[in-house]
Structure formats: C-alpha cells, structure tokens
C-alpha cells in the first residue's frame, strides 16, 4: 500500500540555547516509516534557525504572534492553507496553546487537524492551581500558596518552612531562605510577571521529567522518563539520559487515565531521597527534548499524527534506558537574499 503523505505545519522553530520543540518534532516526523511529510514551518521571528534548515523544513511562513489576536492568526493560516493544503498543525510554544485550543473548530472547518488538550485540561493544570490539581488526581505536590501582597509574607511561616520557592505566574523561580529574601523576590517577580506570586514548598531531591502522549481516552501511548544531566544558566537541559523508573511511569499513566489527557505533555517531578515523587509542573505540550524519546524507541510525534488520523498506533511499552542527548550549537549559513525574501514576503 502506498504511504500517505501529510502536509504538517510546525511552530517553535527557535532552535536556540532556549530551544523550542519544533525541530526535534520534525526530526521525529521525518523518520516515520508509515507516512511521508511535507513540513511547513510557521515562524514568528526572522532569525528562527529552523527557517534556514532546508533539509528539515520545506517551506516557512511567518505568522503573527498570538498577541495580535486569534482572528489575525487564523486569517494567516487560512492563507497558508490555500497555498499548502495543510493537514495538521503542531503548535509547540506555551504562548500559542490558548489560541490554538480555542481555534480547534475553525481549523477543522479548514480541514486542518490538531491534537491538543481540551481547554479544561489546559486551564486546570496552571501553576497557581497546583494544590487543587494534586488533591483531585491524588498526586503529591509541594504546598503552594498564591500571594498578592507583601503583607502576606509574614504569615508564610505558619504554613512553610524555609527555604521556600518564590515563583512567577508564568516563569521564574527563586529560592529564598528568609522573609527578607522573599520580599526581594516578590518585588522582582511581581514587577515582571504581575500578581499573584506563588510561594512553593521547596522539595529536596532530584529533578526528573517524563515526556508522554495521551490519546484523549485515558490511555498512555508514549511515556519516557529522563533525568537532566546538565542545566544551562538559563535553566534548560543541555544533556539528559533516559532512566528506568516504573514509579514515574505509573504516576504518568495514572494521571493520563484520570485526566483523559489529549496530546503531548511533560511532567516535571522531584524525586526525594525517600523515593517520593512530587509533581511541580505540567507542560501541556511536547518538550524540546522529545527527540531523546524518539531515539529511545518511542516516536512520539509520529504516534501523535497516527492518533489524529486514526492510523494504527504502536503499543509503546518499551524504551531504551541509557540513551542520552547532548545539545550542541552549530552555525548555519544563510544569505541576505533569504533574509530579504522572508522579510518582504513573509515566506521562504
């Protein structure tokens, strides 16, 4: 039988030192033996490295930031669809998920599929809701409290022991040993990310992560645990290794069974010396280290496409332990003519 060919649009081509997942996702897709792909890159900025990787990305279009509104994004996608006849879109960045989840039906009307969590799944896993989330799904989470005023800092000693973590609504996390330090971090974070600021119990242990794919009916299609080996000054993994950890897998399957999670996800966990696992964050999308899972035997991007198109999905229960990823940087060579064409036409 002839292999089907899909036109797949992928965002997150910013393969920088704080990488988006686009390029590793594409590598996974290209390795599929069961379908062929034409990759349409969707880029926000004109220097996203993926745009210039012509062996991976067949054609790139610039799209407006989600901040310019759902309508503007959809109008642009409609145009791209008229040129490329898209079958599927994989949004890979946190900031665009809200827009794409909200636009599911409109995309379907254009005959473009997505495979994303529902708005409810997306909203309930926000950092500020972690306590409720842990309680609802029976997962240990560090005690968290949203605070909105410096006055609340004095009262923290009733519920927390120092040190504790001071986190921003979207990004940033600092360890504080004294109320004075909390105060400093509170000011810094609230100025940058607004209120509330989240105070979180500091759990001592090792940070471990799981990449997973849920089919939307409660089944876990892929799940690979990994430990970061080296973390850059931006807090991003520069190297990681797959590990054998049945407890993590079970926790993951359990969560996906209960939430009926649909799409890719990453669980960030802390494993304590007592072998307890605390969930600290859920990223509602495929993480940038996805290619490690592919190399270890679970091609998550491929499985995601298969799920979306009702193809047979392999039963991924195995993966190779001890597979490693090591990020590196590489200077691509571009030309001002490419840059010019992208700048003027928004296409390349």
């Amino acid at each position: 039988m002839e292999k089907p060919k899909f036109n797949i649009a992928v965002t997150g081509l910013n393969n920088t030192d704080n990488p988006g997942p686009g390029i590793p996702v594409i590598r996974g897709l290209k390795e599929s033996k069961d379908f062929d792909v034409r990759i349409i890159g969707l880029a926000y900025e004109n220097l996203e490295p993926g745009i210039y990787m012509r062996d991976l990305v067949d054609k790139t279009y610039q799209i407006p930031y989600p901040s310019s509104g759902k309508e503007a994004v959809l109008e642009r996608i409609e145009y791209i669809n008229s040129k490329e006849n898209l079958d599927f879109i994989i949004p890979n960045l946190d900031a665009e998920l809200y827009t794409f989840i909200q636009s599911k039906e409109k995309l379907e009307k254009m005959d473009i599929r997505t495979f994303l969590p529902t708005m409810q799944q997306f909203e309930e896993r926000h950092k500020a809701n972690l306590n409720e989330y842990g309680e609802k799904y029976g997962i240990k989470v560090p005690l968290s409290k949203s605070i909105t005023s410096r006055r609340d800092i004095d009262e923290l000693k009733e519920d927390f022991e120092y040190p504790l973590l001071v986190k921003g609504k979207f990004y940033d996390a600092y360890l504080a040993y004294t109320p004075e330090q909390v105060n400093t971090h509170f000011n810094k974070i609230s100025a940058k990310w607004g209120l509330p600021v989240i105070i979180q119990e500091f759990i001592r242990g090792t940070e471990v992560n799981v990449i997973a794919l849920g089919d939307g009916h409660g089944n876990t299609v892929c799940a690979v645990p990994m430990r970061k080996q080296y973390i850059t000054d931006k807090g991003k993994a520069w190297g990681g290794i797959t590990i054998k950890d049945e407890k993590m897998l079970e926790l993951t399957r359990n969560l996906i069974r209960q939430t009926k999670w649909r799409g890719g996800m990453e669980l960030e966990l802390i494993k304590t010396n007592q072998n307890e696992y605390f969930l600290i964050e859920i990223n509602p999308r495929i993480p940038a280290w996805v290619y490690l899972a592919v190399a270890a035997g679970q091609n998550l991007p491929e499985a995601l496409i298969k799920l979306a198109f009702g193809m047979d999905v392999p039963n991924y229960s195995e993966y190779e332990v001890g597979k490693m990823f090591i990020r590196y940087s590489f200077d691509l060579i571009g030309d001002i003519a490419q840059f010019g064409s992208l700048s003027v036409t928004g296409e390349m």
């Binding site: 001002i336 003519a337 840059f339 010019g340 064409s341 700048s343 003027v344 036409t345």
Partner: peptide, 15 residues
C-alpha cells in the same frame, strides 16, 4: 534595492 523592495545597507548591515 531588490525587485521586491528589500534594501540592504552593506556598510552597516541594516536591512
């Protein structure tokens, strides 16, 4: 100035 309206200043590197 290119046909499609892209201008490159080779002295400064600005586009």
């Amino acid at each position: 100035v290119s046909e499609n309206g892209f201008l490159f200043n080779p002295e400064t590197g600005d586009s």
